[in-house]
Structures are given as C-alpha cells and as structure tokens.
C-alpha cells in the first residue's frame, strides 16, 4: 500500500497571526506541522502497518522552512518526503496548490492520498477536492473512521451534518480525515534521529515541468477592513446571585 500524505507547514497557531501586506506572514515566524495533518500521518502509518508493506510519502508545498514540517512527519515514522518550494509560490491559492501537489504526486504510483479536512491557517477545505480532480481520482472527505482498506477499495465512515454515511470508494483516491479520527503518535527520540537519514527531496516548479499561467496566482485581495466589534456587556463575579442575574436577563429577553 503506497500512501501519500499532504502535510502543510503553518505559522504556529499558538502565536497571534501577523500580516505581511495583505497575506498571512509565513516566513520569519515560528512554524509547525499543521496539527490537523498529524491525524493524516497517523492514519497512513496505521494503514501501512496493517497492510504489512508499502511506503508512506509526505508531500508539502511551502517555503524552505517547511522542511521542518516534513521532518516532523518523518520522525513520526513516514518513509520519505517531498517538498516543493519556489519563490513564485508565495501566497498560492488552493487551485495553484492543488495543481502543484498533483504534479508532484503523479510522478509515482499511489493507492491513497490523505489530507486534512481543512488547514488550521487557511481552512477553506477545498484543496483536497481540487487535488482529486487533477489526479483524476474520487475523493472521500470528512472521514471520521476507516473501516477497511484493501488494494482496490476503502470503506470509511464519513461525517455528515446529522450523522454519518458509510462510503465505499475505489482506489486510488483522495481521503481527508477529521481531527479525532485517531490519536497521533509522538515522535520518539529514535524516530527523530532516524528522520535525519530519510530521503527528503526538494523540488522547484521547473523540476515538475510547471510554469507560467498554470501556476500564476490569481486570487487577489482587494482590501482588508476592521469589522464592527461586538461590545462587551457587564461581567459579574459570581457571589451566589449569578444565576438569578442570568434568569432576569432571560426574562428581559422574553425567553422566559
């Protein structure tokens, strides 16, 4: 079973975000592997372990620093990594990201591509669908548990707004996993040392044969303005009358 996991390098979500002009600042800030993608790496490792053979390849598009994110996935146990880094990709939209990742993934045979449901910093959650279309394969998103995977198909539980669906999907396919699908393992000291010796290939757009209009970033920000703030009301320390105050408020709001 050959599994590719999309891993994104993002600014540390525990640090307040900074803007660089009209986009999120990504260079010169502390970065991490998107915590949402750790579930993807874990899911891939578990599937490979179950299958007893195969390879887990991590693929990421991002600045040079994104090596850290890939290395982190390698230290969890993935076999190798690919980083596509090119100055002209700064600020890439989901369409360009998908086109670039598809070109990198297509170079080898794969059974499954796993991504997060949505990235922590961009959270559009559309990249995986676009990627699946470029790869010419089906997709199952919002997977909350994997029932079985064999060489030809996967059976998974897909979250819906009101429950879940059991979906059978032919392979190869793109799958996105929710937070909570598994418990991502910690990278052991041994894993961290081993990761340093694992192959991590760095590619430019030229290496992928992509150029010009194909990877031109078209999504443009027209302007950014502060939103109207909601004003804070009164905050009381509970002295035993907190509940009564809330009940009065509810009565005033005509809920009672």
């Amino acid at each position: 079973m050959n599994i590719v996991v999309c891993v994104k390098h993002i600014p540390d979500p525990n640090v307040p975000p900074e803007m660089d002009g009209d986009r999120l600042k990504r260079t010169g800030v502390q970065g991490v592997l998107d915590p949402g993608d750790e579930f993807g790496v874990e899911a891939a490792l578990q599937l490979k372990e179950k299958a007893g053979s195969g390879e887990v390849t991590l693929v990421s598009m991002g600045p040079e620093q994104a090596r850290e994110a890939v290395t982190r996935g390698l230290s969890m146990g993935a076999d190798k990594g690919i980083l596509i880094s090119d100055d002209s990709l700064a600020g890439a939209d989901a369409l360009v990201t998908a086109r670039v990742l598809a070109a990198a993934i297509k170079r080898n045979e794969f059974d499954l591509v796993i991504a997060g449901v949505e990235s922590t910093d961009g959270y559009t959650g559309t990249m995986p669908g676009t990627l699946a279309e470029f790869l010419g394969v089906p997709q199952v998103t919002f997977v909350k548990s994997v029932e079985s995977v064999d060489g030809n198909s996967a059976k998974v539980n897909r979250q819906t707004a009101t429950g879940y669906h059991v979906v059978e999907c032919e392979l190869p396919a793109v799958m996105t996993v929710t937070a909570g699908v598994n418990e991502p393992r910690y990278a052991s000291f041994k894993g961290i040392m081993a990761a340093k010796k694992k192959p991590l290939e760095q590619l430019s757009l030229g290496d992928l044969g992509l150029s010009g209009d194909e990877v031109a970033i078209k999504q443009k920000i027209a302007q950014i303005t502060p939103a109207e703030e909601r004003k804070a009301g009164e905050v009381f320390e509970d002295d035993g009358t907190g509940a009564a105050k809330i009940a009065d408020f509810l009565k005033e709001a005509k809920v009672i």
Binding site: D93, A94, L95, A98, G125, T126, G129, T130, A132, E133
Partner: peptide, 15 residues
Amino acid sequence: RDIAGRLSAKTGSTL
C-alpha cells in the same frame, strides 16, 4: 465544498 473544489480544477477558476 467537495463539488466546488473539483469544479475549480475543471474550469480553472479560483474558488
């Protein structure tokens, strides 16, 4: 989201 994502690849429109 899934449908629009795929459509974006087909039409070449940003989504």
